[in-house]
Amino acid sequence: MLEIRNLHVELEEGGKPILKGLDLTVEAGRVHAIMGPNGSGKSTLSYVLAGREGYVVTQGSARLDGEDILAMEPEERAAAGLFLAFQYPVEIPGVGNMTFLRTALNAQRKARGEEEISSGDFLRLVREKARALNIDAEMLKRPINVGFSGGEKKRNEILQMAVLEPRMCILDETDSGLDVDAMRLVADGVNALRDAGRAFLVITHYQRLLDHIVPDVVHIMADGRIVRSGGPDLALEVETNGYAGILGAGAAA
């Protein structure tokens, strides 16, 4: 589903290289996790895939179902089925959660040549998904993420994912700032979405999220590259030995 080949990315300002020849293939129906020390380029990867400004791709490619996503606008990537759950969801005063979700869903449908969803169907859809994530109606009425706790913001990301039903979901440090209960809710939300036609890329610093969202493949990222790949056991190895133990003292510094 997602194929990244020899991706090189540097910061637009200053030209500092961040990704240095990253290769990654995520197949439909699978959950891949990327772990790595701070500064290894994990978040940059998620932002570049979603189309955030401020990065320059100097080499390589990223394709979603064979389509070059790096040439697309962020909204086109979303319509193509890519979704990024943000590490820091943005607060937007004055724009209601529901208005936003509905505008986003209808824009994606329009871009794919589908009919807009009716108000009634939309309300039912959101209520059903929100209930599963323990998000109450009051939260949905408020402006996007304004006054939300850390856990509420992350649950709101998963709600958006559940409503928009993307095929390629990237979760950037979704566990950061979550207590155990909130993490379980978020993980249940993600697990409910797992199916044969959908793939996940779970980016995390710690192993604990992967107890709840069990990956098929674990990659270790360091200095802008994938340096090791393995099964779920690799995450446990990180937990036991630390990144330094896995990468060797030099690489982890």
Binding site: R52, P74, F83, V95, A107, P143, L164
Partner: peptide, 22 residues
């Protein structure tokens, strides 16, 4: 905020209008 809205599929111009109205 603009990127956040666009990353959910809201086209740039519509996203700008939403933020301006807000």
């Amino acid at each position: 905020a603009l990127f956040y809205l666009r990353s959910r599929g809201v086209p740039a111009e519509e996203a700008r209008d939403l933020l301006t109205l807000a």
